[in-house]
Write a protein that binds this DNA or RNA. Structure first.
Length: 289
DNA sequence: AACACCCCCTGTCGGC
DNA sequence: TGCCGACAGGGGGTGT
């Protein structure tokens, strides 16, 4: 379940294996995942060195020495794994079922990096020099929640006058980019705010941040940083690049806890589930208002 | 502009 | 045991 912390965990896992390495060979096991691979995909990658591994929201950015950048999105079920080219080495559970291994990068350092994505909601694209910010998938992305300027003032500006529910507003990647269903639920729980409340409550009439905005800004930053620190969370099958499960799932306070007791100190509430814009929302109606 | 709704695809889980 | 529907981390497109 790749939201920002999981993508960042993947980036950190791939970085030591990939940065500085040359891509000797690319194996494409199918012509498309969510979208077709771009023209001459293999040729544009083979022989290139990876000079830097970046991230924008939930997108991984592999910067190449050709000046082009490989953009990768994990969708719902995408993952990367790193293996030694020596047969058998680091051969963990998932690789026993190669059905959904769609792209393999053979590197000059002897490693093979494999992109696996059962649901194929992920995608890859290549973009030329200077075209990154104009890429259709990146150009409308909003604020990076871990950037230095992400604070209550920014939230107040973004949501002034918004009548959208907080849950939907925080999921809107054009406003804030990188939060997904889990971390929005968790952040609102930490902030003690109901997901049903209008996003405009983060701003006063003059566009200045309310106390709620301060709480939300801090909750978002804290929950993301803690999740990254823990190596990303795991639902069902998400794994880190070394095949290990993330740990953050063990500290979800509301997500996927419908009917279970609220974990806030002294709160007697029970976690409720509702649906907002087609996605499950989990919250405690007693301590989130 | 801002919703709601459906779709993409595969796997898993609970109920019968 | 098997079948069937509901649902899952994301996000794009369409229609109101």
């Amino acid at each position: 379940m790749p939201e920002l912390p999981e993508v960042e965990t993947v980036r950190l896992g791939l970085e030591p294996a990939m940065v500085g390495a040359r891509i000797d060979k690319v194996e494409l096991r199918r012509p498309d995942i969510r979208f077709p691979f771009p023209p001459r995909f293999r040729q544009r990658l083979e022989g290139r060195r990876i000079v830097k591994l970046g991230r924008r929201a939930k997108y991984l950015l592999f910067h190449l020495d050709s000046g082009e950048t490989l953009i990768a999105h994990l969708g719902m079920s995408g993952s990367f794994r790193i293996e030694d080219a020596t047969p058998g080495a680091f051969y963990h559970e998932r690789s026993k079922d190669p059905k959904h291994d769609h792209v393999l990068f053979h590197l000059d350092n002897g490693r093979v990096v494999t992109f696996n994505d059962p649901r194929r909601f992920g995608f890859m694209d290549l973009v030329g020099k200077g075209g990154l910010d104009a890429h259709p998938r990146l150009k409308d992305l909003g604020a990076e929640p871990l950037a230095a300027d992400f604070d209550a003032h920014l939230l107040a500006k973004l949501f002034q006058g918004s009548r959208a529910p907080l849950k939907s507003a925080l999921l809107d990647q054009r406003k804030i980019a990188g939060l997904g269903n889990i971390y929005v639920c968790e952040a609102l729980f930490r902030a003690g705010l109901s997901p049903l409340k209008q996003a405009g409550v983060l701003s006063d009439a003059r566009g200045r941040p309310t106390r709620a905005a301060t709480a939300v800004a801090e909750a978002i930053r804290n929950v993301l940083e803690e999740a990254i620190e823990a190596g990303g969370s795991t639902l069902r099958d998400h794994r880190q690049t070394n095949g290990e499960l993330g740990y953050f799932q063990h500290v979800f306070k509301v997500y996927d806890r419908e009917g279970q007791p609220c974990l806030r100190e002294r709160c007697r509430g029970v976690v409720a589930r509702t649906v907002q814009s087609g996605r499950s929302t989990f919250y405690c109606a007693i301590c989130q208002h």
